[in-house]
Design a binder for these strands. Sequence first.
DNA 1: GCGTGTGAATTCCTTCACAGCT
DNA 2: AGCTGTGAAGGAATTCACACGC
Lengths: 237, 237
Amino acid sequence: MTSADFSDTAATVPVNARQLPPAAVARLPLYLRALNTLMADGVERVSSEELADLSGVSSSNLRKDLSYLGSYGTRGVGYEVQPLAAHISSALGLTQDWRVAIVGAGNLGRALAGYGGFMSRGFDVVALLDADQLLVGNEVGWLRISDAADLETVLERSRANMVVLALPASAAQNVCDRVVAAGVHSILSFAPVVLQVPGFVNLRKVDMATELQILAYHAQRSVDPRLADPRVDGISS
Amino acid sequence: MTSADFSDTAATVPVNARQLPPAAVARLPLYLRALNTLMADGVERVSSEELADLSGVSSSNLRKDLSYLGSYGTRGVGYEVQPLAAHISSALGLTQDWRVAIVGAGNLGRALAGYGGFMSRGFDVVALLDADQLLVGNEVGWLRISDAADLETVLERSRANMVVLALPASAAQNVCDRVVAAGVHSILSFAPVVLQVPGFVNLRKVDMATELQILAYHAQRSVDPRLADPRVDGISS
DNA sequence: GCGTGTGAATTCCTTCACAGCT
DNA sequence: AGCTGTGAAGGAATTCACACGC
C-alpha cells in the first residue's frame, strides 16, 4: 500500500533519469510487477534471464532496458530484487502519489474505481464523476459520484493530477478539453475516439475495440494458411 | 514467431492480404473508425492528410500503411471513403463475425459485455462466465452468466472463437490454459499478469495499471524540466 | 496543379556477442 | 566460471522527397 518501502536513495539522485526510450519505459511496469511477485515470494536475487521470462521479454532486451537506468546488477550474480524494484519505481515517478479522477461512472468507470486496489500502489482514485443526474450522489465504494458539470471545481478540490476518461466517444473530446483547461495534463482515455490535445498533454489510449480488431487480423490469418504463406498461388477459392 | 514465413518472391498474388507490418496493423482500426465517422457524416472522399489528422498519425505514415493494402486511392484526388473502409475491414478479417466469450463477470467483465454495442460490429458477445456461484445464473443484458467450471462446454456450445479474460491475476493463467486447450487461440487479457502461452496463440494484453505507470513517467518529467530538457547549461548557440 | 504511391534516408528498437567485473 | 553491461550489427518503423497519374 504505502510507497514507503522504496525510500533509500531518494535524496541522492545522481540524475540517473536520462531520457529513456519510450519502448523501454513501456516495459518497466512489467519488470516492476515481476519484481513485486518475487518479493512477495521472498526471493532476494534474480538473474536477467529469470526476470525476462517472468516479464515476457528477451533477456538482452531486459538488460539493455535496465542499463538505461544505471548499473544496478552484479556481474556474475544478478540483480537484487528490492533495490531494483525501488530504482524502477523511482524512474517511473511512483515515489510520489498520483491522484486520479475518473470521469464516467458507467460500468467501466465503476470497474476502474473498484480496480483501485488492484492498481499498483501510488495511484489514488480521488474523484468519480458523471453527467447523468441519476448517478450523481450515488456511493461507489467510499466515493460519492460528483456531477460532471462541476468538473473544474471537483478537479481542483480533489487536487487530481491525472484523469481517466471512461465515457462515450461523443462526450470525450469536450470533457478532455475541459480537463486540459483545468490544468490536468495527464490523461488516460478509454473512449473509442481519437482525442485532439495540445502537445504538452500526456495522453494515452486504451481501446478494446481496437484490440479485438488487431486480434481478428492475426486470428484470421492463423485460420487461413493461404494468407499466412503466400506460396500457394493456385487460383482455388 | 511464425514457423512459415519463407516469403520470398510470392510473384502473382493479387490477394490484398500480404503480410502487413504489425505496427501498420495496429493502426488500421484507427483509420477504420475515422472512415466510419466520415461515412456517418456523408463524406465520400478524403485526402491522406485529413484522414491522418482524424486518426492521429502523420500523413506519410498513413499513406505507407494503406499502400501495404494496395492502391486504393486516386492521385491528385484522395481516397473514396466507402471502398477504403471495406478494404480495411476485409484486411482486418472483419468480414466474418467473431464470437467472443468473456470470462469474469465482475465490474470489468460486465462493462465489456455491455460495451458490445460500442464495439465495431463483427464482434458478438456469446457467453459470459464467472467462477462465483453468487453470480452464476444472473442476467446481464440478454446474457446469462455461466459457471466458469463449465468453461469447455460453454465455449463449445457457444462456438466462441475469441476469449476475453476479465479476471484477477491469480485465476488468469489457469483459465488461459484451459481456453487454449479448448481450442480457442485468440485471447485478449485484462488481467494484470504476464500469461505464458504456446507460440501459436494470439494473445493481446490490456492493462490499466501499466498505462498509468507509463503516464506517471511522462507526467513526472513534464513537471521537472531538468529531466525533460538537458540543454540548461549555457551552450546556447 | 494536386495528392497518392514509393524508393531512399533516417531514426528507433532489438539482438548479438563479448569485454569486464565478482 | 558466471552473468551483467554495452558497443556494434541487424532489423523495423517512420519520415522524406519526389516521380507519377489524374
